[in-house]
Design a protein around this nucleic acid. Structure first.
Lengths: 128, 128
DNA sequence: AAAAGTGTACTATGGATATAATACACTTAG
DNA sequence: CTAAGTGTATTATATCCATAGTACACTTTT
């Protein structure tokens, strides 16, 4: 069952996008695998305190992108081929890192300062 | 005059927020200083291809936060005390780095991998 | 003084996001 | 089989973002 208890919704970003990214991040990290079961729309709606239509929108878009399969009446399952996973694992971190580097350069930071900051925060942030 | 020619608008983030962040980043980087002149609402509207009301919203919020001063009929000027700048220079990079570290952890990346990726992209990205 | 430029305000419209409330067909568990 | 759970669809409402057009007072330039 795909976990959503670790998903903390932040405002400023559309909820349905945060749900989509959470699923993709799980697939890229390997904690979510092909064939795995997803919570129902209604259950996830209750868990996150979000309207069922918002969950449906996220799941519908994920299905259109080929990351899950749904059949009326049955539970939805993750769908991820090896090629899909590999592409995701390759592109997702790269994309995020590029945006980060760009923003840090805009702030006038140096490469060394940025790396030091990342290393410091990496250890500092919640040891799980 | 505060420069906006380097601002490349991306979609998915409200335009008025991108304008606000661009100004703040400039102040934090030291390329935008106290008393500096801003382009008029109409001029910046034409430059970015954005509605004047959107520019006005960004400038109004910046003024409410104390980053600029406007007087009807006259041009708007940057307002940034030493304390404001120092706080910005301290908090902005930290905030962005935290979000980055969190997202990279969600993708299952290691600290070493992340640092290596940042260093690689830092050199790669546009040498201006 | 006149004209141009600037800040500011207002109304109206359209699209995206999110909520609310139903409704129905299908699958699964009892 | 029956009931509960599930996916799916629909209509309506509210808010935010952005655009469009207009208007007016003030400042600066000419």
């Amino acid at each position: 069952m795909v976990e959503f208890t670790t998903l903390r919704l932040e405002d400023g970003v559309p909820i349905y996008l945060q749900i989509i990214r959470h699923v993709k991040a799980g697939i890229a990290a390997g904690t979510v695998v092909d064939g795995e079961e997803l919570p129902s729309r209604r259950a996830l709606s209750a868990l996150l305190g979000v309207n069922p239509n918002t969950i449906q929108k996220a799941f519908r878009l994920l299905e259109e992108e080929g990351w899950l399969q749904s059949h009326t009446g049955a539970k939805s399952l993750i769908s991820a081929t090896a090629e899909q996973v590999e592409a995701l694992r390759k592109n997702l971190p790269d994309y995020q890192a590029r945006a980060f580097v760009r923003s840090m350069k805009a702030l006038g930071a140096t490469c060394a300062d940025t790396v030091a900051l990342v290393e410091t925060l990496w250890k500092e942030e919640e040891p799980e």
